[in-house]
Amino acid sequence: MSRLEGKITLVTGAGNARGLGAATAHRFAQEGAFVYVTDLKLEDAEGVAAAIRDEGGQAEALAQDVTDEASWDAVIGAIVQGHGRLDVLVNNAGIAILKPLADLTAADWERQNKVNLDSVFYGTQRAVALMRKVGQGGSIVNLSSIAGYVGVPMCGAYAAAKGGVRLFSKVVAMECAADNIRCNSVHPGMIETAMQDVARRDNPEGFKEIVNAIPMKRMGSPLDIANMNLFLASDEAGYITGCEFIVDGGVTAM
């Protein structure tokens, strides 16, 4: 397959082998892309990159703190040194601290906005600058959430950040359309990742009830998100920018 043949791509927060970033990195490599896999822990990123190479794909791991501008500059510098351009950026790195408003601390608020929103600004700004310099356009995919689309209890800070990602992506799309740089947001619902293992273990009956409330009666898989990211990264989405794509099994349609 060659939907991303020859494209240079970066997926942040991709060091968790069961996460959305790792699934996206694998799909990109399967479709011919060179993938830079970044994570806070280099060994985690290298584990995913090595698995991609074992499958015959092309990948390199880099350590990255997405909340640190100097770290972003180092990653972009390495990409420029290695390939001279960046065709696709997936701002995937994120955290969730779920608390009711009364229990939410200023530190919780600041940390979630730093990781989930500020990092998207840092990465997008640098990717756009490089894409404009090279002059070949590009695609930026920003991971939001259904919590950035509708109100979800316990998600005050998380929702604020993810809602910011949604509208920030639209602004970037408008500013960059003439440069053929596309920017879209992806909004996952409940996805089967390691994070769900804890909820299933601690509250099995409540967890089952939540899953049964999904119209499709199941959680999505990381591959469902990876395939959406792949479409938006590819030339098949060449006339799509400034849009949000909900992947939630029908939850927000209710």
Rank of each mutant, 00 (worst) to 15 (best):
G250A: 06
D197S: 07
G206Y: 13
E244R: 04
D202I: 13
V247K: 02
V198E: 12
V165F: 04
I191D: 06
D179H: 09
K208S: 14
F207E: 14
R218S: 07
M216S: 08
G250N: 04
G220N: 05
F245A: 03
M174T: 14
Y239W: 13
I181F: 00
C183P: 09
N227P: 01
M195F: 04
Y239G: 00
F231G: 02
V171T: 15
E175I: 08
A177C: 08
R200L: 08
A233C: 06
V251M: 11
V171W: 09
C176M: 14
R201G: 02
I210N: 14
D179Y: 06
A199F: 13
D248G: 09
P188A: 01
R200A: 14
C183I: 09
N184F: 03
N227H: 15
P188V: 04
R218W: 04
L223W: 12
P222E: 11
F207H: 14
E192H: 12
G220S: 05
E209I: 10
G242K: 03
M195I: 12
K208T: 15
S169W: 01
M228F: 02
A177P: 05
N212L: 12
G163E: 06
N229V: 11
V186C: 00
V186Y: 00
I240H: 03
G238C: 11
H187D: 07
E244Q: 09
I214Q: 05
M195E: 11
M174I: 14
L223I: 15
M228P: 08
M174S: 12
R182M: 06
L167G: 06
R182G: 01
N229M: 14
D235M: 01
V211T: 03
R182F: 10
L230D: 07
V172D: 05
E175S: 07
I214A: 02
M174H: 11
E192K: 15
S169D: 02
G220L: 03
D235I: 03
N203K: 12
V198M: 11
F168Q: 05
V171L: 09
I240C: 04
A173Y: 04
H187R: 02
L167C: 04
L167T: 15
V165T: 01
M228N: 00
R182Y: 00
